[in-house]
Amino acid sequence: MTDQVFEVFCRIAPGDPMSHIGTLNAPHIDLARVYAWKIYDEEDWSDMWVIPRASIVSAHPANDDGAGVGSA
């Protein structure tokens, strides 16, 4: 099992837009969740998401070959 890249998004207050705050490497989503919380805990976040980069799909027409952002 090789490491994947995960993107981390957070917001401080409920209702705020999610902001991209960084990336991390992890072999699977469970460890990615732990690492995200431990690495990016400098703020009192109300919400934190961790998303495999390979799961992010570009919506821009210039990238309409169907490739995910993570695989570009």
């Binding site: 099992m1 699977h28 469970d30 460890l31 969740r33 732990v34 919380w37």
Partner: peptide
């Protein structure tokens, strides 16, 4: 809870490898 999630994640990984 996070300590355990970290531990479980690593045990699972090393078991699979």
């Amino acid at each position: 809870r996070f300590h355990y999630a970290h531990a479980e994640g690593w045990v699972r990984l090393m078991e699979e490898r």
